[in-house]
Amino acid sequence: TPPITTFVQQLFPHGVPQAQASNYSSADTAVLLTLLADSKQQDLHANILETLGYIGDETTVAPIVAYIQGGRGVISAAQFRAKSSGLLALGYILNRNPNSSALLYLTDSLDHQTWQARDIAWTTAFFPDLISRDVQLVRQAAVGMTLSGSPQAAAALKRKLSP
C-alpha cells in the first residue's frame, strides 16, 4: 500500500479503485484534508474526495460540504469535477454510517431551491446559467443518495423526485 499522498497522485481514468482506497483509514484523512485545502493541488482533489468517501469517516462530512459550497468566481474543470465527486463521497460515507449527517445534506440537495438558498458563489464555464448548475448538482446528489444504499435515502429520492 503506497503512502496516501502517492496514492491520490495517480491517474484513475475509471475513478479511484474502491478496494485500494479502502486500505486507508481515518489516520490518513488529515493528510487528505490538508491537500484539499491547497488550491495548487486541485488536480488531485477529485481523487481525494473519492478516497475520503471510501474511507467513510463521519468527521469528514463537514469539510466535504465546505469544499462543495466554497470557492468564488469561475472555477476550473478539475475543481468542478472534485465538487461533483464530493456529493458522491457523502453517499459513500452515508453507506458506512447510517446516521450520518450526510443524509440530511443530500436530502436537502435534491431541491434546486436549496442550492439557491446556499448562495454558492462559484460557477463553471460549462453551464450557461446558475439554474443549469443547480440542476446538475441535484442530479449528482441523487447519484450520491443512490450509492449510499440507505433506505432513508431511497425514501427521500422517491418523495422528492417522483413526477
Binding site: Q18, N95, M145, T146, L147, A153, K158, L161
Partner: peptide, 24 residues
Amino acid sequence: NSMLDEMLKANQTINAHGLDNYQS
C-alpha cells in the same frame, strides 16, 4: 420515471449486497 426506478433499484442492491460488491 425510469431514471428514478433505476436509482431505487441500485440503492436497494447496494443496501442488500454492500457497496463493495456493487462496484466490483
